[in-house]
Design a protein around this nucleic acid. Structure first.
Lengths: 291, 291
DNA sequence: CCCGCTTTGAAATTTTTGGTACAGCTTTAT
DNA sequence: ATAAAGCTGTACCAAAAATTTCAAAGCGGG
């Protein structure tokens, strides 16, 4: 991944690269302009000055100063450059696709991103379609209450899942993994309930205990874990493993998040008839609260 | 966000196709305009009317008549359409660049993963290395207390960040975004403090209020947001935008998670001398608790 | 805490651009 | 051959865009 590419492109540094490089010396407004431009590169720059300024939340003169600072004679000159760059890029099939553009991004960030992408690909390829669909079906069953739980890091993913499913359907809850917090709630858990547990390496005693107890009560347990499989797998009806390796002292939860988001998306789609009015109602409540 | 259909709309015929189709009924100058446009599609149309007319060897009014005939309100409207078409075309091939092996995984999961990968690539390419490094430096400064906050969905990411940084360094806290929960804590926030805010589309009033208040107190605000930039960007010292588009009714936070994890990894590395004993101490505590 | 320097945006100004009216030319039908 | 219909371009106008000016606001250094 670390390239000393034999065919180092002799290309002049693209404007985007130059901006990234000089970002540190920009003033606040210039940074805003730069961010907006980079985020929608190069389309944010193809509109009018006024439009660009509005998108960046700065004034038109600041935009002008920004393009002048980058060495252009004026805004039209700047736009012309963008168009030419775009045209050149679109004509050469090399420029697009492939891994992340050489030299872009902070090195640490880039290598991390590459690891995460590899994780995601590996995760997708290892999930059995039927298993994924079965979990979607389970989560789409409105008669079944759903409970999410996770460990000290994965707990955040559980919360993320809960905050979405709560809007799509009813009967959703978040269970903290400390036994003190779920012991008494366990009396309510039965055959109808679904427990979705997130648990990865350094598998956490309390999450395991919670899942096993729930399973013993007859609940259906869904487990999202790493490829080594949490012990919860023994009591789980469905297991979705995600790759978590990262160039870090910590594991990456991106694969788990991917699965979570994909489950949310698929469930929302499947429940669209009932989810839609529900989501609209939530929006209305939020809007009215705002006043 | 509430779309009437859970799936993406079927593509409308591109302008180029429409032109080819109607070419037969065009007048002579219209044909010339069409020909020039198609041969350098769509860049020939992105210049001025005069430029376009000159290239086609016709007069400006003829160009105007041409675009009107194609159903556009005027030349700017026509250009806007070209840009949008171009943007859509340029973004989609990214996801297909390194397609996940055909036939693997559930279809819904696979397409979602492709979108997430595209997001991650776009996110990494748009982050200025200096900006990323500056944030790492900020988070590595042990004299500065760090507070994380986020909205209803991004709050989970804030919590994820907090649960990691808490172990790497001291002086870390999680601030719930409801004003009632942070109003009184704000008295403690000053120039030394760092507030890391997560806020994406449907930017949340209370997160904005929290950030603005903190900034007014002199705190340094770091913002992780979407490419449209939360209003918090106005008061933020550093902004890290992440792409969030997904084939879903919901946005994807994978890019935000990527940035978060990369920040954690980089900070851990940078603080290794002090983080290492600290992490070991945490582990010892956990082990002893287990008995 | 205050002063000087830098940055920023509102408003005025200038330039460019898109749009329109109209007259001449070409073509076609009778 | 001639009149009618339809294109096309020149010249002009209106609109919008880019740019400059200037005063206020913010920031950093002493």
């Amino acid at each position: 991944m670390l390239d000393s590419s034999p065919t180092a492109a002799p290309e002049p540094p693209s404007l985007a690269e130059r901006i990234r490089h000089e970002m540190a010396h920009f003033t606040l407004s210039e940074k805003r302009a730069a961010h907006v431009l980079l985020s929608h590169y190069p389309f944010a720059g193809l509109d009018t000055v006024a439009e660009f300024a509005a998108r960046a939340g700065i004034s038109a003169p600041s935009v002008l100063r920004f393009v002048t600072r980058m060495g252009f004679a004026g805004f039209p000159d700047f736009q012309k450059h963008l168009r030419e760059e775009l045209e050149a890029q679109l004509l050469s099939p090399l420029a697009k696709s492939d891994p992340i553009e050489r030299g872009s991004g902070a090195p640490a960030l880039r290598s991390f991103a590459e690891a995460v992408i590899a994780n995601i690909q590996a995760t997708v390829e290892n999930i059995a379609p039927a298993e994924f669909e079965a979990v979607v079906a389970l989560l789409s069953d409105l008669r079944r209450p759903v409970h999410f739980t996770g460990g000290r890091f994965t707990g955040a993913v559980a919360r993320y899942a809960e905050s979405h499913f709560r809007i799509v359907r009813g009967g959703v809850s978040l269970m903290e993994s400390q036994p003190a917090l779920w012991r008494d709630r366990m009396i309510e858990i039965g055959r109808r309930d679904v427990v979705v547990a997130f648990d990865i390496r350094r598998y956490q005693e309390d999450v395991i205990a919670l899942s096993e107890t729930a399973a013993a009560q007859g609940a259906t347990v869904v487990l999202l874990t790493d490829p080594w499989l949490s012990p919860i797998a023994r009591v789980a009806k469905h297991v979705l493993p995600a790759h978590v390796a990262a160039p870090s002292n910590w594991d990456s939860s991106a694969g788990l998040l991917l699965l979570t988001e994909a489950l949310v998306a698929a469930t929302t789609k499947r429940l669209w008839e009932t989810a839609r009015p529900r989501m609209e109602a939530v929006e209305r409540l939020r809007d009215s609260e705002r006043n």
